[in-house]
Computed example of a mutant assay.
Amino acid sequence: MINKNIAVGVIVLLGLVGVYSTDEDGLGGKVLVFPYETNFSFVKLIPDKAMSLQAFTLCMRVATELEGERQFILFAYRTPEYDELNVWREKDGSLSFDLRGDGVSFRLPLLSTFRTSLCLTWESQTGLAAFWVDGRRSTYQVYKRGHTIRPEGTILLGQDADEHLGGLESVQSFVGEITDLHMWDYVLTRSQIQALHYGHKISRGNVFDWATIQYQLNGTVLVVDDD
């Protein structure tokens, strides 16, 4: 068995000299495992279309054993100047997201070691935003009406880049499992989100589709079979 401290030291060294895995395509039937907190482990995602968005649906299945007053990032999209779209589990257990500024928070069932089907919807025209947990919608909140998410940024899972691919902090890193991440540039209907939760086929995500998603691994993130 490889000593954990030695393995981490080697990976940190690789990270310092900027070594990434080669680009990969497709995670159908796979799970991303973030085994422990670090300031160097993340997955970079490459979208299928420009992230110039006036509406979106972002879905994933997530499990974690992180508890207590520990904030962590679920999804981070940053351009060189701003955090364009970040999704957080806050210290009090609530979920929040922010679009280039102060965010909006939702009190929802706590994420746990058992996998949660999680979706987030937002659209600019009305500002209506909601989280969906296992097919059930939260109350709507009105947030950033008239806003547009800008393209040409970097999308990360597992870490929040306070600078453009810099300023990573272990205390904000995600620890757990993520799978079935999909994103659309429009708001799905209730029936579509519920169908996705129950594993039925719906229209493929036109920004991200887990089966064909392009990604790069960095650090200790593992890709394992979804059993």
Score class of each variant (00 low, 15 high):
W184T: 08
Q214Y: 02
A195N: 14
A129I: 06
L128W: 09
T57K: 02
R89F: 00
S117C: 12
S21L: 11
V223C: 02
R107W: 09
V142L: 12
S52W: 10
G15Y: 13
N86W: 03
P80A: 07
E90L: 14
L111K: 04
E81R: 12
E163D: 13
P35Y: 04
S52M: 12
Y140F: 15
S117R: 07
V17P: 03
V133L: 11
Y20C: 10
I202T: 11
G205C: 04
D180F: 03
Y82W: 15
P109Y: 08
V175L: 01
S173R: 02
R100S: 14
G176Y: 01
L95M: 09
T116A: 10
F72M: 10
L14G: 13
S105M: 10
T79N: 07
T22Y: 12
R61K: 15
Q54R: 14
Q172K: 08
V17I: 14
G28Y: 09
F40H: 14
V10L: 15
G166C: 06
S112A: 10
L196H: 14
F174P: 07
I202P: 00
K91D: 14
T116H: 06
V43E: 00
D209P: 02
L66F: 00
S96Q: 04
I213D: 00
P35R: 04
T212G: 01
L157Y: 00
S112H: 02
H147A: 13
R115T: 14
W132K: 04
T212Q: 12
V175G: 01
L217I: 08
R204V: 12
G29M: 09
P35E: 08
E84W: 00
K144H: 05
L53Q: 04
L13R: 14
S173Q: 04
